[in-house]
Design a binder for these strands. Structure first.
Lengths: 121, 121, 121, 121
DNA sequence: GTGGTCTAGACCACC
DNA sequence: GTGGTCTAGACCACA
Protein backbone atom coordinates (compact mmCIF):
# COMPACT_ATOMS: atom_id res chain seq x y z
CA UNK A 1 0.00 0.00 0.00
CA UNK A 2 1.23 3.46 -0.84
CA UNK A 3 1.09 6.20 1.70
CA UNK A 4 1.29 9.92 1.44
CA UNK A 5 3.27 11.92 3.87
CA UNK A 6 0.65 14.39 5.01
CA UNK A 7 -1.39 12.11 7.17
CA UNK A 8 -0.28 9.54 9.72
CA UNK A 9 -0.12 6.06 8.22
CA UNK A 10 -2.44 4.59 10.79
CA UNK A 11 -5.07 7.16 9.82
CA UNK A 12 -4.61 6.44 6.14
CA UNK A 13 -5.32 2.81 6.92
CA UNK A 14 -8.41 3.88 8.82
CA UNK A 15 -9.55 5.91 5.83
CA UNK A 16 -9.07 3.00 3.50
CA UNK A 17 -11.15 0.80 5.77
CA UNK A 18 -13.88 3.43 5.82
CA UNK A 19 -13.89 3.41 2.04
CA UNK A 20 -13.94 -0.36 1.86
CA UNK A 21 -16.99 -0.41 4.10
CA UNK A 22 -18.70 2.35 2.12
CA UNK A 23 -18.02 0.44 -1.09
CA UNK A 24 -19.26 -2.83 0.35
CA UNK A 25 -15.89 -4.53 0.14
CA UNK A 26 -16.11 -5.05 3.88
CA UNK A 27 -19.52 -5.92 5.24
CA UNK A 28 -21.11 -5.57 8.64
CA UNK A 29 -20.54 -8.63 10.80
CA UNK A 30 -17.53 -9.74 8.79
CA UNK A 31 -14.19 -10.44 10.35
CA UNK A 32 -11.37 -8.01 9.67
CA UNK A 33 -8.01 -9.30 8.49
CA UNK A 34 -5.93 -10.08 11.55
CA UNK A 35 -3.53 -7.44 12.71
CA UNK A 36 -0.59 -9.41 11.42
CA UNK A 37 -2.19 -10.15 8.06
CA UNK A 38 -3.07 -6.52 7.56
CA UNK A 39 0.46 -5.56 8.58
CA UNK A 40 1.91 -7.79 5.89
CA UNK A 41 -0.54 -6.72 3.18
CA UNK A 42 0.00 -3.03 3.84
CA UNK A 43 3.74 -3.43 4.46
CA UNK A 44 3.55 -1.73 7.78
CA UNK A 45 4.52 -2.57 11.32
CA UNK A 46 1.87 -4.56 13.25
CA UNK A 47 1.89 -1.89 15.94
CA UNK A 48 0.73 0.62 13.39
CA UNK A 49 -2.15 -1.58 12.26
CA UNK A 50 -2.99 -2.18 15.91
CA UNK A 51 -3.28 1.54 16.30
CA UNK A 52 -5.66 1.79 13.36
CA UNK A 53 -7.83 -0.97 14.79
CA UNK A 54 -7.81 0.54 18.26
CA UNK A 55 -8.92 3.81 16.72
CA UNK A 56 -11.75 2.11 14.85
CA UNK A 57 -12.81 0.24 17.96
CA UNK A 58 -12.93 3.50 19.91
CA UNK A 59 -15.22 4.87 17.21
CA UNK A 60 -17.37 1.73 17.42
CA UNK A 61 -16.79 0.76 13.83
CA UNK A 62 -15.26 -2.58 14.74
CA UNK A 63 -15.27 -4.67 17.89
CA UNK A 64 -13.09 -7.40 19.27
CA UNK A 65 -13.86 -10.99 20.10
CA UNK A 66 -11.17 -12.14 22.47
CA UNK A 67 -8.66 -14.45 20.91
CA UNK A 68 -10.59 -14.51 17.65
CA UNK A 69 -10.21 -11.17 15.97
CA UNK A 70 -11.90 -7.93 15.04
CA UNK A 71 -15.35 -7.77 13.49
CA UNK A 72 -17.26 -5.00 11.80
CA UNK A 73 -20.07 -3.57 13.90
CA UNK A 74 -23.64 -3.82 12.71
CA UNK A 75 -24.16 -0.09 12.49
CA UNK A 76 -20.78 0.57 10.89
CA UNK A 77 -21.95 1.51 7.41
CA UNK A 78 -24.56 3.96 8.59
CA UNK A 79 -22.21 5.47 11.12
CA UNK A 80 -19.52 6.08 8.54
CA UNK A 81 -21.97 7.55 6.08
CA UNK A 82 -23.18 10.02 8.66
CA UNK A 83 -19.67 10.85 9.76
CA UNK A 84 -18.49 11.42 6.21
CA UNK A 85 -21.56 13.44 5.29
CA UNK A 86 -21.08 15.71 8.25
CA UNK A 87 -17.41 16.09 7.40
CA UNK A 88 -18.38 16.91 3.84
CA UNK A 89 -21.00 19.48 4.73
CA UNK A 90 -19.15 21.18 7.54
CA UNK A 91 -15.60 21.11 6.27
CA UNK A 92 -15.11 20.17 2.66
CA UNK A 93 -17.98 22.18 1.26
CA UNK A 94 -17.23 25.47 3.03
CA UNK A 95 -13.60 25.13 2.03
CA UNK A 96 -14.61 24.40 -1.53
CA UNK A 97 -16.93 27.38 -1.76
CA UNK A 98 -14.34 29.65 -0.25
CA UNK A 99 -11.80 28.51 -2.84
CA UNK A 100 -14.31 28.97 -5.61
CA UNK A 101 -15.04 32.53 -4.61
CA UNK A 102 -11.42 33.46 -4.12
CA UNK A 103 -10.53 32.01 -7.50
CA UNK A 104 -13.66 33.10 -9.35
CA UNK A 105 -14.58 29.58 -10.29
CA UNK A 106 -18.10 28.94 -11.43
CA UNK A 107 -20.25 25.98 -10.53
CA UNK A 108 -20.60 25.26 -14.25
CA UNK A 109 -16.85 24.64 -14.45
CA UNK A 110 -17.23 22.05 -11.72
CA UNK A 111 -19.96 20.25 -13.59
CA UNK A 112 -17.78 19.80 -16.63
CA UNK A 113 -14.86 18.59 -14.57
CA UNK A 114 -17.09 16.12 -12.78
CA UNK A 115 -18.26 14.64 -16.07
CA UNK A 116 -14.65 14.17 -17.08
CA UNK A 117 -13.84 12.58 -13.73
CA UNK A 118 -16.72 10.14 -13.92
CA UNK A 119 -15.72 9.00 -17.41
CA UNK A 120 -12.11 8.45 -16.38
CA UNK A 121 -13.08 6.04 -13.65
CA UNK B 1 -6.85 34.88 15.87
CA UNK B 2 -8.33 31.44 16.30
CA UNK B 3 -6.41 28.42 15.19
CA UNK B 4 -7.46 25.00 14.25
CA UNK B 5 -5.42 22.15 15.58
CA UNK B 6 -5.12 20.20 12.37
CA UNK B 7 -2.68 22.48 10.59
CA UNK B 8 0.52 24.07 11.84
CA UNK B 9 -0.11 27.54 13.18
CA UNK B 10 2.50 29.13 10.96
CA UNK B 11 0.76 27.70 7.92
CA UNK B 12 -2.60 28.98 9.07
CA UNK B 13 -1.07 32.43 9.24
CA UNK B 14 0.35 31.95 5.77
CA UNK B 15 -3.09 31.00 4.51
CA UNK B 16 -4.66 34.11 5.98
CA UNK B 17 -2.05 36.26 4.30
CA UNK B 18 -2.75 34.53 0.99
CA UNK B 19 -6.40 35.36 1.42
CA UNK B 20 -5.71 38.94 2.33
CA UNK B 21 -3.70 39.34 -0.83
CA UNK B 22 -6.31 37.63 -2.97
CA UNK B 23 -8.98 39.87 -1.48
CA UNK B 24 -6.88 42.99 -2.01
CA UNK B 25 -6.56 43.74 1.69
CA UNK B 26 -2.82 43.51 1.19
CA UNK B 27 -1.47 44.95 -2.03
CA UNK B 28 1.67 44.35 -4.00
CA UNK B 29 4.51 46.61 -2.90
CA UNK B 30 2.96 47.24 0.49
CA UNK B 31 4.81 46.66 3.71
CA UNK B 32 3.77 43.71 5.84
CA UNK B 33 3.06 44.22 9.52
CA UNK B 34 6.27 43.72 11.45
CA UNK B 35 6.90 40.34 12.95
CA UNK B 36 6.21 41.68 16.42
CA UNK B 37 3.02 43.45 15.45
CA UNK B 38 1.76 40.36 13.74
CA UNK B 39 2.74 38.27 16.75
CA UNK B 40 0.70 40.50 19.03
CA UNK B 41 -2.32 40.70 16.74
CA UNK B 42 -2.43 36.96 16.23
CA UNK B 43 -1.49 36.12 19.83
CA UNK B 44 1.32 33.92 18.75
CA UNK B 45 5.00 33.54 19.50
CA UNK B 46 7.14 35.83 17.30
CA UNK B 47 9.17 32.81 16.26
CA UNK B 48 6.06 31.37 14.73
CA UNK B 49 5.34 34.51 12.73
CA UNK B 50 8.96 34.56 11.68
CA UNK B 51 8.46 31.10 10.32
CA UNK B 52 5.41 32.18 8.34
CA UNK B 53 7.33 35.06 6.82
CA UNK B 54 10.30 32.85 6.01
CA UNK B 55 7.94 30.47 4.28
CA UNK B 56 6.39 33.31 2.26
CA UNK B 57 9.81 34.62 1.38
CA UNK B 58 10.88 31.26 0.12
CA UNK B 59 7.80 31.14 -2.06
CA UNK B 60 8.69 34.63 -3.31
CA UNK B 61 5.46 36.15 -2.10
CA UNK B 62 7.22 38.64 0.14
CA UNK B 63 10.77 39.91 0.32
CA UNK B 64 12.86 41.46 3.03
CA UNK B 65 14.55 44.86 3.18
CA UNK B 66 17.10 44.54 5.94
CA UNK B 67 16.32 46.71 8.88
CA UNK B 68 13.09 47.93 7.34
CA UNK B 69 10.69 45.07 7.05
CA UNK B 70 8.94 42.68 4.73
CA UNK B 71 7.22 43.78 1.54
CA UNK B 72 4.85 42.09 -0.81
CA UNK B 73 6.38 41.10 -4.14
CA UNK B 74 5.09 42.56 -7.35
CA UNK B 75 3.96 39.31 -8.81
CA UNK B 76 2.46 38.08 -5.54
CA UNK B 77 -1.19 38.19 -6.51
CA UNK B 78 -0.73 36.32 -9.74
CA UNK B 79 1.52 33.77 -8.17
CA UNK B 80 -0.94 32.99 -5.42
CA UNK B 81 -3.79 32.70 -7.87
CA UNK B 82 -1.87 30.15 -9.90
CA UNK B 83 -0.76 28.25 -6.85
CA UNK B 84 -4.27 28.11 -5.48
CA UNK B 85 -5.74 27.10 -8.81
CA UNK B 86 -3.30 24.27 -9.13
CA UNK B 87 -4.00 23.17 -5.58
CA UNK B 88 -7.68 23.33 -6.32
CA UNK B 89 -7.51 21.29 -9.48
CA UNK B 90 -5.05 18.68 -8.34
CA UNK B 91 -6.02 18.17 -4.76
CA UNK B 92 -9.33 19.66 -3.73
CA UNK B 93 -11.32 18.62 -6.77
CA UNK B 94 -10.25 14.98 -6.86
CA UNK B 95 -10.94 14.69 -3.15
CA UNK B 96 -14.29 16.37 -3.60
CA UNK B 97 -15.32 14.11 -6.43
CA UNK B 98 -14.27 11.05 -4.52
CA UNK B 99 -16.36 12.10 -1.55
CA UNK B 100 -19.30 12.83 -3.82
CA UNK B 101 -19.18 9.38 -5.31
CA UNK B 102 -18.76 7.60 -2.01
CA UNK B 103 -21.66 9.51 -0.52
CA UNK B 104 -23.86 9.57 -3.60
CA UNK B 105 -23.98 13.31 -3.75
CA UNK B 106 -25.09 14.90 -6.98
CA UNK B 107 -23.65 18.00 -8.57
CA UNK B 108 -27.13 19.50 -8.49
CA UNK B 109 -27.06 19.33 -4.69
CA UNK B 110 -23.87 21.32 -4.76
CA UNK B 111 -25.40 24.03 -6.90
CA UNK B 112 -28.20 24.59 -4.42
CA UNK B 113 -25.81 24.68 -1.48
CA UNK B 114 -23.64 27.15 -3.31
CA UNK B 115 -26.54 29.51 -3.88
CA UNK B 116 -27.31 29.39 -0.17
CA UNK B 117 -23.68 30.02 0.66
CA UNK B 118 -23.43 33.04 -1.60
CA UNK B 119 -26.53 34.62 -0.09
CA UNK B 120 -25.30 34.11 3.46
CA UNK B 121 -22.12 36.02 2.83
CA UNK C 1 -24.08 -17.02 28.64
CA UNK C 2 -23.13 -13.39 28.26
CA UNK C 3 -19.58 -12.32 28.78
CA UNK C 4 -18.04 -9.08 29.67
CA UNK C 5 -14.96 -8.06 27.79
CA UNK C 6 -12.89 -6.95 30.75
CA UNK C 7 -12.16 -10.37 32.20
CA UNK C 8 -10.97 -13.53 30.50
CA UNK C 9 -13.88 -15.73 29.53
CA UNK C 10 -12.50 -18.75 31.32
CA UNK C 11 -12.36 -16.74 34.54
CA UNK C 12 -15.91 -15.54 34.10
CA UNK C 13 -16.95 -19.17 33.88
CA UNK C 14 -14.95 -19.92 37.01
CA UNK C 15 -16.73 -17.11 38.80
CA UNK C 16 -20.13 -18.43 37.84
CA UNK C 17 -19.21 -21.85 39.17
CA UNK C 18 -18.06 -20.31 42.44
CA UNK C 19 -21.41 -18.61 42.73
CA UNK C 20 -23.32 -21.76 41.95
CA UNK C 21 -21.47 -23.55 44.70
CA UNK C 22 -21.96 -20.71 47.18
CA UNK C 23 -25.67 -20.68 46.34
CA UNK C 24 -25.96 -24.43 46.66
CA UNK C 25 -26.86 -24.98 43.03
CA UNK C 26 -23.80 -27.17 42.81
CA UNK C 27 -23.11 -29.37 45.82
CA UNK C 28 -19.98 -31.02 47.17
CA UNK C 29 -19.46 -34.47 45.69
CA UNK C 30 -21.65 -33.75 42.71
CA UNK C 31 -20.47 -34.27 39.17
CA UNK C 32 -19.79 -31.18 37.07
CA UNK C 33 -21.33 -30.89 33.62
CA UNK C 34 -18.92 -32.39 31.10
CA UNK C 35 -16.60 -30.04 29.31
CA UNK C 36 -18.60 -30.43 26.11
CA UNK C 37 -21.95 -29.87 27.77
CA UNK C 38 -20.62 -26.79 29.47
CA UNK C 39 -19.14 -25.59 26.21
CA UNK C 40 -22.49 -25.89 24.50
CA UNK C 41 -24.49 -24.30 27.30
CA UNK C 42 -22.12 -21.35 27.59
CA UNK C 43 -21.54 -21.06 23.83
CA UNK C 44 -17.83 -21.18 24.23
CA UNK C 45 -14.95 -23.14 22.79
CA UNK C 46 -14.38 -26.42 24.70
CA UNK C 47 -10.75 -25.42 25.14
CA UNK C 48 -11.92 -22.45 27.13
CA UNK C 49 -14.08 -24.57 29.43
CA UNK C 50 -11.18 -26.96 29.80
CA UNK C 51 -9.13 -24.08 30.99
CA UNK C 52 -11.74 -23.12 33.56
CA UNK C 53 -11.83 -26.65 34.88
CA UNK C 54 -8.06 -26.87 35.00
CA UNK C 55 -8.03 -23.65 36.98
CA UNK C 56 -10.61 -25.01 39.42
CA UNK C 57 -8.72 -28.24 39.74
CA UNK C 58 -5.55 -26.41 40.57
CA UNK C 59 -7.39 -24.51 43.29
CA UNK C 60 -8.70 -27.85 44.56
CA UNK C 61 -12.31 -26.91 44.06
CA UNK C 62 -12.95 -29.80 41.69
CA UNK C 63 -11.10 -33.00 40.95
CA UNK C 64 -10.99 -35.32 38.02
CA UNK C 65 -11.87 -39.01 37.77
CA UNK C 66 -10.25 -40.18 34.60
CA UNK C 67 -12.75 -41.18 31.98
CA UNK C 68 -15.68 -40.19 34.16
CA UNK C 69 -15.62 -36.50 34.69
CA UNK C 70 -15.02 -33.69 37.14
CA UNK C 71 -16.44 -33.70 40.67
CA UNK C 72 -16.74 -31.05 43.30
CA UNK C 73 -14.37 -31.47 46.21
CA UNK C 74 -15.70 -32.00 49.70
CA UNK C 75 -14.22 -28.85 51.12
CA UNK C 76 -15.16 -26.73 48.13
CA UNK C 77 -17.83 -24.59 49.74
CA UNK C 78 -15.71 -23.66 52.71
CA UNK C 79 -12.68 -23.00 50.58
CA UNK C 80 -14.57 -20.67 48.29
CA UNK C 81 -16.07 -18.80 51.18
CA UNK C 82 -12.66 -18.17 52.67
CA UNK C 83 -11.18 -17.19 49.34
CA UNK C 84 -13.99 -14.77 48.64
CA UNK C 85 -13.86 -13.29 52.10
CA UNK C 86 -10.18 -12.64 51.80
CA UNK C 87 -10.64 -11.13 48.37
CA UNK C 88 -13.42 -8.98 49.76
CA UNK C 89 -11.44 -7.72 52.72
CA UNK C 90 -8.13 -7.19 50.99
CA UNK C 91 -9.21 -5.95 47.62
CA UNK C 92 -12.83 -4.95 47.30
CA UNK C 93 -13.12 -3.09 50.57
CA UNK C 94 -10.02 -0.93 50.22
CA UNK C 95 -11.03 -0.05 46.68
CA UNK C 96 -14.54 0.74 47.85
CA UNK C 97 -13.37 2.95 50.67
CA UNK C 98 -10.99 4.78 48.40
CA UNK C 99 -13.78 5.48 45.93
CA UNK C 100 -16.04 6.61 48.73
CA UNK C 101 -13.51 9.10 49.97
CA UNK C 102 -12.67 10.44 46.53
CA UNK C 103 -16.35 10.89 45.73
CA UNK C 104 -17.47 12.02 49.16
CA UNK C 105 -19.89 9.20 49.56
CA UNK C 106 -21.14 8.45 53.04
CA UNK C 107 -21.70 5.03 54.53
CA UNK C 108 -25.29 6.08 55.17
CA UNK C 109 -25.82 6.40 51.44
CA UNK C 110 -24.67 2.84 51.06
CA UNK C 111 -27.13 1.58 53.62
CA UNK C 112 -30.04 3.06 51.74
CA UNK C 113 -28.85 1.67 48.43
CA UNK C 114 -28.42 -1.74 49.98
CA UNK C 115 -31.99 -1.78 51.24
CA UNK C 116 -33.17 -0.95 47.74
CA UNK C 117 -30.98 -3.66 46.29
CA UNK C 118 -32.26 -6.31 48.69
CA UNK C 119 -35.89 -5.49 47.88
CA UNK C 120 -35.28 -5.64 44.15
CA UNK C 121 -33.98 -9.16 44.31
CA UNK D 1 5.88 4.68 40.65
CA UNK D 2 4.78 1.19 41.47
CA UNK D 3 2.48 -0.69 39.16
CA UNK D 4 0.37 -3.71 39.63
CA UNK D 5 0.15 -6.33 37.00
CA UNK D 6 -3.58 -6.54 36.51
CA UNK D 7 -4.08 -3.33 34.61
CA UNK D 8 -2.08 -1.87 31.76
CA UNK D 9 0.49 0.61 32.97
CA UNK D 10 -0.80 3.38 30.77
CA UNK D 11 -4.23 2.99 32.37
CA UNK D 12 -2.77 3.01 35.86
CA UNK D 13 -1.16 6.32 34.98
CA UNK D 14 -4.52 7.55 33.74
CA UNK D 15 -6.11 6.49 37.02
CA UNK D 16 -3.48 8.31 39.04
CA UNK D 17 -4.09 11.45 37.06
CA UNK D 18 -7.82 11.14 37.68
CA UNK D 19 -7.11 10.91 41.38
CA UNK D 20 -4.75 13.86 41.33
CA UNK D 21 -7.43 15.95 39.69
CA UNK D 22 -10.11 14.77 42.11
CA UNK D 23 -7.80 15.60 45.02
CA UNK D 24 -6.95 19.00 43.62
CA UNK D 25 -3.28 18.19 43.11
CA UNK D 26 -3.80 18.98 39.45
CA UNK D 27 -6.09 21.88 38.69
CA UNK D 28 -8.13 22.83 35.66
CA UNK D 29 -6.17 24.98 33.24
CA UNK D 30 -2.83 23.82 34.58
CA UNK D 31 -0.17 22.36 32.40
CA UNK D 32 0.55 18.67 32.70
CA UNK D 33 4.13 17.48 33.16
CA UNK D 34 5.64 16.99 29.72
CA UNK D 35 5.59 13.50 28.31
CA UNK D 36 9.28 13.09 28.92
CA UNK D 37 9.16 14.46 32.47
CA UNK D 38 6.30 12.15 33.34
CA UNK D 39 8.17 9.27 31.76
CA UNK D 40 11.14 9.91 34.01
CA UNK D 41 9.12 10.44 37.18
CA UNK D 42 7.09 7.29 36.66
CA UNK D 43 10.06 5.29 35.35
CA UNK D 44 8.24 4.32 32.23
CA UNK D 45 8.86 4.60 28.51
CA UNK D 46 7.77 7.92 26.98
CA UNK D 47 5.61 6.02 24.51
CA UNK D 48 3.62 4.64 27.39
CA UNK D 49 3.03 8.07 28.87
CA UNK D 50 2.11 9.30 25.41
CA UNK D 51 -0.51 6.64 25.32
CA UNK D 52 -1.94 7.75 28.65
CA UNK D 53 -2.11 11.33 27.47
CA UNK D 54 -3.68 10.38 24.16
CA UNK D 55 -6.29 8.45 26.09
CA UNK D 56 -7.02 11.41 28.33
CA UNK D 57 -7.22 13.73 25.35
CA UNK D 58 -9.72 11.42 23.68
CA UNK D 59 -11.82 11.61 26.85
CA UNK D 60 -11.51 15.41 26.81
CA UNK D 61 -9.80 15.55 30.19
CA UNK D 62 -6.70 17.23 28.79
CA UNK D 63 -5.98 19.07 25.57
CA UNK D 64 -2.86 19.91 23.63
CA UNK D 65 -1.34 23.22 22.71
CA UNK D 66 1.00 22.59 19.83
CA UNK D 67 4.62 22.73 20.77
CA UNK D 68 3.79 23.74 24.33
CA UNK D 69 2.27 20.80 26.10
CA UNK D 70 -0.87 19.30 27.54
CA UNK D 71 -3.28 21.24 29.70
CA UNK D 72 -6.16 20.17 31.89
CA UNK D 73 -9.58 20.97 30.43
CA UNK D 74 -11.89 23.32 32.24
CA UNK D 75 -14.59 20.75 32.78
CA UNK D 76 -12.16 18.02 33.78
CA UNK D 77 -13.00 17.80 37.47
CA UNK D 78 -16.72 17.62 36.94
CA UNK D 79 -16.36 15.13 34.13
CA UNK D 80 -14.24 12.81 36.21
CA UNK D 81 -16.57 13.04 39.17
CA UNK D 82 -19.50 12.04 37.00
CA UNK D 83 -17.58 9.27 35.34
CA UNK D 84 -16.39 7.86 38.64
CA UNK D 85 -19.81 8.16 40.24
CA UNK D 86 -21.41 6.28 37.40
CA UNK D 87 -18.72 3.64 37.60
CA UNK D 88 -19.32 3.38 41.32
CA UNK D 89 -23.08 3.09 41.10
CA UNK D 90 -23.26 0.79 38.12
CA UNK D 91 -20.31 -1.45 38.71
CA UNK D 92 -18.69 -1.28 42.12
CA UNK D 93 -21.87 -1.12 44.14
CA UNK D 94 -23.69 -4.04 42.48
CA UNK D 95 -20.55 -6.11 42.76
CA UNK D 96 -20.21 -5.16 46.41
CA UNK D 97 -23.78 -6.01 47.25
CA UNK D 98 -23.53 -9.29 45.45
CA UNK D 99 -20.41 -10.19 47.44
CA UNK D 100 -22.11 -9.13 50.65
CA UNK D 101 -25.07 -11.37 50.05
CA UNK D 102 -23.01 -14.34 48.96
CA UNK D 103 -20.81 -13.99 52.02
CA UNK D 104 -23.52 -12.99 54.49
CA UNK D 105 -21.85 -9.75 55.34
CA UNK D 106 -23.91 -7.11 57.07
CA UNK D 107 -23.80 -3.40 56.38
CA UNK D 108 -22.94 -2.88 60.05
CA UNK D 109 -19.70 -4.75 59.52
CA UNK D 110 -18.85 -2.35 56.74
CA UNK D 111 -19.43 0.66 58.95
CA UNK D 112 -16.95 -0.57 61.48
CA UNK D 113 -14.36 -1.35 58.87
CA UNK D 114 -14.82 2.07 57.34
CA UNK D 115 -14.17 3.75 60.69
CA UNK D 116 -10.96 1.77 60.99
CA UNK D 117 -9.97 2.72 57.47
CA UNK D 118 -10.55 6.40 58.04
CA UNK D 119 -8.45 6.41 61.18
CA UNK D 120 -5.58 4.65 59.49
CA UNK D 121 -5.30 7.32 56.87
C1' DG E 1 12.12 22.60 24.35
C1' DT E 2 7.25 20.33 22.97
C1' DG E 3 4.35 16.27 20.99
C1' DG E 4 3.68 12.53 17.28
C1' DT E 5 4.65 8.64 14.55
C1' DC E 6 6.88 4.61 13.23
C1' DT E 7 9.76 0.49 13.53
C1' DA E 8 11.66 -3.56 15.60
C1' DG E 9 11.41 -6.79 18.76
C1' DA E 10 9.97 -8.88 22.89
C1' DC E 11 6.64 -11.00 26.03
C1' DC E 12 2.18 -12.14 27.63
C1' DA E 13 -2.62 -13.80 28.11
C1' DC E 14 -6.19 -15.75 25.75
C1' DC E 15 -9.16 -18.83 22.50
C1' DG F 1 -3.57 -18.83 16.02
C1' DT F 2 -5.59 -14.12 18.14
C1' DG F 3 -4.86 -9.25 20.29
C1' DG F 4 -2.35 -6.16 23.81
C1' DT F 5 1.34 -3.94 26.06
C1' DC F 6 5.79 -2.28 26.69
C1' DT F 7 10.52 -0.90 25.58
C1' DA F 8 14.11 1.16 22.95
C1' DG F 9 15.40 4.02 19.69
C1' DA F 10 14.89 6.85 15.78
C1' DC F 11 13.15 10.75 13.14
C1' DC F 12 10.21 14.57 12.31
C1' DA F 13 7.49 18.89 12.64
C1' DC F 14 6.38 22.50 15.54
C1' DA F 15 6.62 26.75 19.02
Amino acid sequence: MEFNNQLAIYLQIVERIYEDILLGKLKEGERMPSVREMAVSTEVNPNTVMRSYAHLQEKEIIFNKRGIGYFICDIALNKIQNMKKEEFLEQELPKLFKSMQLLNIDIKDLEKQFEVYKKEK
